[in-house]
Nucleic acid binder design. Structure first.
Lengths: 190, 190
DNA sequence: TGGGTCATGTAACCTGTTACATGATTAG
DNA sequence: CTAATCATGTAACAGGTTACATGACCCA
């Protein structure tokens, strides 16, 4: 998966592992987070597969760098990946796995649990409002406004997801709180 | 992750690997899909960790089975996992990775792409309406209505996600179709 | 006699995470 | 002097996927 993300970036222009790591952090982090170590490893297999070639560039005052350039075979592989249909609808969610079994904890513990989720989602939105995916940096790389459209779609997805998530969490909290009142003598009518 | 899901199920009652695989298929598949091979492997490590004990039961007319029973240490581990806070808000999405780079394909190809996503989501909803997560089977296992609440929450999440997803896809298609009309001479006003 | 259910797995592989490791330059 | 930025990775582990493998019984 990450392999093809890297290939996609290399297709915009030649760059180093270091560059790739930073683009992931700045512009793709909210739907994919890439470990430095994995990026360097994938670059090795990309090279081994002949999807990119590397060239060592000396710099002064800075360490040498290894610039990767996509090959025709790499572009073909990128296109193959984009065309292949294996995008299954489905939500592999570690969070739901936990929610599913929360009956083992007390009502109060679970209210705390969901309130923490709520806070995380607020924090996420706040962080996003402070530093949205870095438009300028990405525009430098991507240039073509037509291509930026797809980037915008992923951001819209992130925002819609975040909104839906918050609604779900609030709904869960409401249900738990109603149960709590029922337990402690039905104070809802007062 | 799956390890703890299995532990959660064993906590409801002793069962075999085969049972676990089927419960995952019937009731948890829409947020986690478990491979048979992985289930059997995880059961081995669960046993090795002392979280469950196994007992071979002979049957007539059917192959022998290995029934796993959770231990106190297993219950403690389940509780530890539920209590530990590592539920990061964030959406690791292979789909978004693909959407991000779709600028490499033509408008028409991309309209097809999103229409396929739309169909998948319709198919998912239809399948869910025909056979929603198997209430009866799950009720047999879970019994306690208080615990079933958390199961219901995961289903609500699935439905809300599915709705949001469809809206997002429709929104994407709309944007692409507008662009198409602009390209072919702005027929929107007619 | 052919397909479904019951029931068990192994082996190889791929992908992602965590921890560790180095070292020069530059700005505050 | 110290922290950040630039720039590279290795090693071990954890978790998930794919392919393969076996075998009896039951129902149509």
């Amino acid at each position: 998966m990450l392999k093809h993300g890297i290939l996609g970036l290399l297709n915009y222009g030649s760059m180093t592992g270091y560059d790739i790591v930073h683009i992931f952090k700045d512009s793709l982090s909210y739907f994919w987070n890439a470990q430095t170590s994995q990026v360097y490893r994938e670059l090795q297999t990309i090279k081994k597969n002949g999807w990119a070639a590397d060239e060592t560039v000396e710099q002064d005052g800075k360490p040498d760098k290894k610039v990767f350039t996509i090959t025709d075979s790499g572009r073909a592989e990128l296109k193959r990946w984009l065309t292949e249909d294996n995008v299954e609808f489905g939500i592999r969610s570690p969070l739901m796995m936990k929610v599913f079994f929360r009956g083992e904890c007390s009502l109060d513990e679970n209210i705390d649990f969901f309130e923490k989720l709520q806070n995380d989602s607020y924090a996420f939105d706040y962080k996003m409002s402070l530093s949205p995916p870095d438009t300028k940096k990405y525009a430098e790389i991507i240039k073509d406004p037509m291509k930026a459209l797809y980037w915008k779609m992923t951001i819209e997805y992130g925002m819609m997801y975040s909104k839906m998530y918050r609604q779900w969490v609030e709904n869960c909290i409401r249900q738990l709180e109603e149960l709590k009142y029922e337990d402690t003598g039905d104070q809802r009518k007062s």
